[in-house]
Design a protein around this nucleic acid. Structure first.
Length: 225
DNA sequence: GCGACAG
DNA sequence: ATCTTGTCGC
């Protein structure tokens, strides 16, 4: 079975490789990704991972890819990356065009050991990443004002900025943005906000999720026959 | 000791 | 993290 104690040690080693700094390249393509499970409450189960690629800043959809496979590691808060990364990397490799940055569904450095799934994915693939989660995991913050575009920063125990809480839509819960790799807090915040249209989640994440919904439906149907 | 705890 | 339906507020 999976050893979470060793996984925590691995995260402590990997965190030294995370680079939080201004993005060095211009953004022409941005990708989003997501996972779904045939039975999310059972492990092992079959997981499906998807990537969607968009032109930036127009947000025109360019490509969609997916892959499925067995997932054997259970979800434990703080260790999401170990469950999701194998399939995410396989799906990422199917993209015919590599994005300049990836928005990952989960946290980056706003994590107990600064190694959320976004940072982990960024380090193992050498890609700039930004985490965009729907719920808080780690850090101190005050809720942002109820205006679209309002935000407040997330701080660690030492008072260092590790992310931001961003209101992408009025009267809707905010999202939690933190650098994954090769970008900083401000840059990530700006990118996520530029990827938001009329919904709570940025388009790359939202479209990836919707895409997977259809794939999952097809797979469930084929499973029965 | 207790609560909190991405997906 | 899934699915489905109804309900409420803007």
């Amino acid at each position: 079975m999976f050893n979470f104690k060793k996984a925590a040690v691995a995260q402590q080693i990997l965190r030294k490789k995370v680079q939080v700094k201004p993005l060095e390249t211009s953004i022409n393509y941005v990708a989003g990704c997501d996972l779904t499970f045939l039975n999310p409450f059972k492990t092992p189960t079959v997981g499906i991972a998807a990537f969607t690629l968009f032109k930036y800043p127009e947000l025109d959809l360019i490509e969609k890819v997916w892959i499925s496979g067995e997932v054997e590691i259970p979800y434990v808060p703080g260790f999401l990356a170990f469950r999701e990364i194998p399939l995410l990397v396989r799906a990422f490799n199917k993209l015919s065009t590599k994005p300049d940055i990836v928005i990952v569904d989960g946290h980056g450095i706003a994590h107990p050991r600064r190694m959320g799934v976004a940072s982990h994915f960024g380090v193992v693939t050498g890609t700039p990443t930004i985490g965009c989660a729907k719920k808080p995991l780690y850090g101190n913050f005050s809720p942002p004002e109820n205006r679209k575009g309002a935000f407040s920063f997330i701080f660690d125990e030492e008072g260092k900025r590790i992310g931001a809480v961003l209101r992408t839509k009025v009267n809707v819960k905010p999202v939690y943005v933190s650098p994954g790799h090769l970008i900083d807090v401000e840059g990530g915040l700006h990118l996520v906000y530029n990827c938001v249209k009329s919904y709570r989640l940025p388009e790359p994440t939202r479209i990836s999720h919707n895409f997977l919904k259809g794939i999952r439906k097809q797979l469930m149907k084929n499973n029965k026959k």
